[in-house]
Write a protein that binds this DNA or RNA. Structure first.
Lengths: 251, 251
DNA sequence: ATTGTTTCCGTATGGCCTACGGAAATGGGG
DNA sequence: CCCCATTTCCGTAGGCCATACGGAAACAAT
């Protein structure tokens, strides 16, 4: 399977689940052993610990000491479950609207980044056909409000929004990728690059890559802390410059 | 499975494959029915047509009318095969270094985007521990050269590089996601959003989302062409503004 | 106790990766 | 011409996965 997808099923059913529309109480019939919330919570727990790849229906059911097929009574399928998981963790952002529009966008970026840190499997969830639940929508509103306050004209607000959203999710995903792989393979990013020392020894061609060579000699690659910090710094820089550009384009 | 990963195996073996170090000619023994190149080409063909999810070892072997296990003689495993595929298609960029540094960065973005368009499965390949082959390295050198020419000091060149690389790959991935899903589910992005009309009717809360409501009323969401075009425009805008910011930060 | 309703879940199908080990092909030396 | 080291080919098997189907089990009301 490629990236885990979602949003495939019946929109009406999925939306009802996302917004937890109370499914009119059933006075008759067997009592449920599990609830949607329990399933989503268990699924998130499994994915947090072992990655989205390990989050199989069987595994989640096991966690709840329930038969695999019981889950299908409460959730249409795996895709929809992932939708629910994603929207749930996005709600953890708890965005507070203080400060200038720039500060708020940065706040949004930080909170979103924190979600990815806490739930690295978010990297594997496509946000192109996103779950239209409260977690996602609240975030959208927050960024749009900040951009609207910036004085950008409406048309540009929507354009800038897509660019920022893309940057933030992309950055958060990249940043987290490293840790995710480290967990999965039991090998840290630094050690992975260390093992590829062979590359610099045996394959790097100084004539083919003059700029890299120059930069190397200029000490531009002497990193202070861990590699992950460097990546993070770079994305902070990128967001800053993106906002600079947007701000500059207004005048 | 989460995103398809790679880069797990023995670095020495993988690097030899990426750079096609000729494995000293074997004078004795049975003649190979397939070569590494044939395997990679077939794998790319399958992934192009049916997605990375369909690119199984069995499927590729079938394509070459060969037993599944024969592939393992030439390629260590699926992860390494994906590395080879990725680096191969990145080589298709054929970057030409004309114009200002900004033009060259944009050229790079466009060519990379084209690769993702032609090979949508690239969305599912993580670029955090990338295949250190010629395709990737040539791209890195190209962007670094452009940034170095911009007059940015060496330290900032590497920082800006990570930011740009993240933006470009992220943008290309997002853009392609839509088409990939369309193919996979047989439903276009526009029709998908159309089916979610229910959301606006039944769940959208005007009081909870005042900015969205205002923007909607201001006509900011009246899109001209297809949704995909709008996304593309937004990323062009984003890259432009990012470069503006970088340029502005130099003075 | 029967009936209607709802939930639980065992089974089965068809897919995936890849470890293992034997069969088949090939060229050189006797 | 036969033998044999060497290399490649590939069948089998084990252990995963999602989910369609249909019957068993639990519960409330009659």
């Amino acid at each position: 399977m490629a990236s885990e997808r979602s949003g495939g099923g019946d929109p009406v059913r999925t939306l009802a689940l996302l917004w937890r529309t109370p499914p009119e109480p059933k006075p008759v019939g067997r009592k449920p052993k599990v609830s949607v919330d329990q399933i989503v919570t268990a699924a998130i727990a499994v994915a947090d610990r072992e990655g989205l790849g390990a989050m199989s229906m069987a595994r989640v059911a096991q966690e709840l000491t329930v038969g695999t097929m019981s889950l299908y009574t409460h959730v249409p399928g795996k895709g929809e479950l992932i939708d629910l998981m994603a929207d749930t963790v996005l709600q953890e952002r708890a965005l507070s609207s203080d400060g200038t529009w720039r500060e708020r966008v940065k706040h949004y970026a930080d909170r979103t980044r924190a979600v990815y840190q806490a739930h690295p499997w978010m990297r594997d969830v496509s946000m192109v056909r996103p779950p239209l639940g409260p977690g996602l929508m609240d975030g959208q509103e927050f960024v749009l409000a900040a951009l609207a306050d910036s004085g950008l004209e409406p048309r540009l607000v929507t354009v800038a929004h897509v660019a920022i959203e893309g940057f933030v999710h992309g950055a958060a995903a990249s940043e987290v990728d490293d840790q995710q792989l480290a967990e999965k393979t039991g090998e840290s990013g630094d050690s992975w690059w260390g093992a590829r020392q062979v590359f610099w020894d045996d394959y790097f061609d100084v004539e083919r890559y003059p700029t890299m060579t120059t930069l190397w000699n200029a000490g531009a690659y002497e990193i202070e802390g861990a590699l992950a910090d460097h990546v993070r710094t770079s994305f902070d820089y990128g967001l800053e410059k993106l906002l600079d550009g947007i701000e500059g384009g207004m005048r």
